[in-house]
Simulated assay, not measured.
Amino acid sequence: MTSKEAVIQELEKIPEHLLAEVLDFIQFLNIKYSKEELETHLLSESSLAKDWLNVEEDQAWQNL
């Protein structure tokens, strides 16, 4: 059984009045990890720019 299947199985046991709280938590996790990915991308941008923004790199990619 996959984790997703186990979660679905457990959701079927939860009383209806608690499902809104479960949904809130799932949405919180999605937002949390989306923000972490974005922060990682933004933090790495300046480091990567040192390698990417140069004449040699432009020449290497000019035919694509």
Results as ranks from 00 to 15, higher is better:
residue 2 T to S: 15
residue 2 T to L: 13
residue 3 S to L: 11
residue 3 S to W: 12
residue 3 S to A: 08
residue 3 S to E: 11
residue 3 S to M: 13
residue 4 K to N: 09
residue 6 A to N: 13
residue 6 A to D: 11
residue 7 V to I: 08
residue 7 V to R: 02
residue 7 V to H: 02
residue 7 V to E: 01
residue 7 V to Y: 07
residue 8 I to A: 12
residue 8 I to W: 14
residue 9 Q to W: 10
residue 9 Q to S: 15
residue 9 Q to N: 15
residue 10 E to A: 15
residue 10 E to M: 13
residue 10 E to L: 10
residue 11 L to V: 12
residue 11 L to H: 11
residue 11 L to W: 09
residue 12 E to T: 12
residue 12 E to V: 12
residue 12 E to M: 15
residue 13 K to S: 14
residue 14 I to K: 04
residue 14 I to L: 14
residue 16 E to F: 08
residue 16 E to G: 07
residue 16 E to A: 13
residue 16 E to K: 05
residue 17 H to C: 03
residue 17 H to F: 01
residue 18 L to F: 06
residue 18 L to T: 04
residue 18 L to H: 06
residue 18 L to P: 00
residue 21 E to S: 03
residue 21 E to C: 01
residue 21 E to V: 06
residue 21 E to Y: 01
residue 22 V to I: 11
residue 23 L to I: 10
residue 23 L to R: 02
residue 24 D to T: 14
residue 25 F to R: 07
residue 25 F to E: 12
residue 26 I to Y: 07
residue 26 I to D: 08
residue 26 I to M: 06
residue 27 Q to R: 09
residue 27 Q to T: 08
residue 27 Q to P: 05
residue 27 Q to V: 07
residue 28 F to S: 15
residue 28 F to Q: 13
residue 29 L to E: 06
residue 29 L to Y: 08
residue 30 N to G: 06
residue 30 N to F: 07
residue 31 I to R: 00
residue 32 K to T: 09
residue 32 K to D: 05
residue 33 Y to C: 04
residue 34 S to Q: 01
residue 34 S to G: 04
residue 34 S to M: 01
residue 34 S to N: 02
residue 35 K to Q: 01
residue 35 K to M: 00
residue 35 K to R: 06
residue 36 E to V: 00
residue 36 E to I: 00
residue 36 E to T: 02
residue 37 E to M: 10
residue 37 E to T: 08
residue 37 E to Q: 10
residue 38 L to E: 07
residue 38 L to T: 05
residue 38 L to P: 03
residue 40 T to C: 09
residue 40 T to A: 15
residue 41 H to P: 04
residue 41 H to I: 15
residue 41 H to S: 12
residue 42 L to V: 14
residue 42 L to H: 13
residue 43 L to G: 04
residue 43 L to V: 04
residue 43 L to A: 08
residue 43 L to F: 08
residue 44 S to L: 03
residue 44 S to K: 02
residue 44 S to H: 01
residue 45 E to V: 07
residue 46 S to G: 07
residue 46 S to M: 10
residue 46 S to L: 10
residue 46 S to Q: 10
residue 47 S to F: 03
residue 47 S to T: 03
residue 47 S to P: 01
residue 48 L to R: 03
residue 48 L to I: 04
residue 48 L to V: 03
residue 48 L to Y: 03
residue 48 L to C: 00
residue 49 A to G: 00
residue 49 A to N: 06
residue 49 A to V: 04
residue 49 A to Y: 05
residue 49 A to C: 03
residue 49 A to R: 08
residue 50 K to V: 09
residue 50 K to Y: 04
residue 50 K to E: 07
residue 50 K to G: 03
residue 51 D to S: 05
residue 51 D to K: 02
residue 51 D to H: 07
residue 52 W to H: 04
residue 52 W to N: 03
residue 52 W to I: 13
residue 53 L to P: 00
residue 53 L to Q: 05
residue 54 N to Q: 07
residue 54 N to A: 05
residue 55 V to R: 13
residue 55 V to H: 12
residue 55 V to W: 09
residue 56 E to T: 07
residue 57 E to S: 13
residue 57 E to K: 12
residue 57 E to G: 05
residue 58 D to N: 15
residue 59 Q to D: 13
residue 59 Q to K: 15
residue 59 Q to S: 11
residue 59 Q to P: 06
residue 60 A to G: 10
residue 60 A to T: 11
residue 61 W to N: 09
residue 61 W to I: 09
residue 61 W to R: 10
residue 61 W to A: 05
residue 62 Q to Y: 11
residue 63 N to I: 02
residue 63 N to V: 05
residue 63 N to S: 09
residue 64 L to N: 02
residue 64 L to I: 06
residue 64 L to K: 03
